[in-house]
Amino acid sequence: MAVVGSYFPGRGTLVEETFLKGKAEGEVHSRVQGVLRVLEKRGITTPPETRARITDCTDLGTLDRWFDRAFTVSTTDELFAVEESDR
């Protein structure tokens, strides 16, 4: 039976760790840009402190939640509101 898995030359090395770190940073950057773009296209003002909070976030789950909310909120304060389902 053949084992199917990913193969990365130099697995377990600094090269792989650097690659994976870059990949994760790219995913975070993409989600941050998505949240900001949706807010911008919807005409929702994004003050500097709000923009900083979004761009400084590195948690993909939080960014996904903000992205989903960005489609329905009226203000950026609503973007960060804690809902019962988030607890």
Rank of each mutant, 00 (worst) to 15 (best):
G12D: 01
G12M: 02
G12C: 02
T13P: 11
T13I: 02
T13K: 08
T13W: 02
L14F: 08
V15P: 00
E16P: 02
E16V: 04
E16H: 10
E16L: 04
E16R: 11
E17G: 05
T18F: 05
T18V: 09
F19R: 05
F19Q: 01
L20K: 14
L20F: 04
K21R: 12
K21N: 03
G22E: 06
G22K: 07
K23W: 10
K23A: 12
K23Y: 12
K23L: 14
A24W: 00
A24I: 02
A24M: 04
A24R: 13
G26T: 01
G26S: 06
E27N: 13
E27Y: 06
V28E: 07
V28Q: 00
V28C: 02
H29I: 04
H29Y: 08
R31A: 08
R31I: 11
V32L: 05
Q33V: 04
Q33K: 15
Q33L: 11
Q33S: 14
G34S: 15
V35I: 14
V35L: 11
L36G: 07
L36S: 08
R37Q: 14
R37E: 08
V38L: 14
V38H: 03
L39C: 14
L39F: 12
E40H: 15
E40C: 06
E40F: 07
K41Q: 15
K41P: 04
R42M: 12
G43D: 12
G43C: 07
I44Y: 12
I44Q: 11
I44S: 13
I44C: 13
T45P: 11
T46N: 10
T46I: 15
T46W: 03
P47V: 06
P47W: 12
P48R: 10
P48A: 09
E49F: 08
E49P: 06
E49L: 09
T50L: 03
T50H: 11
T50Q: 09
T50M: 12
T50C: 12
A52D: 10
A52V: 01
A52L: 08
R53N: 05
R53G: 05
I54G: 01
I54T: 01
I54Q: 00
I54R: 00
I54N: 01
I54Y: 00
T55Q: 06
T55F: 04
D56F: 00
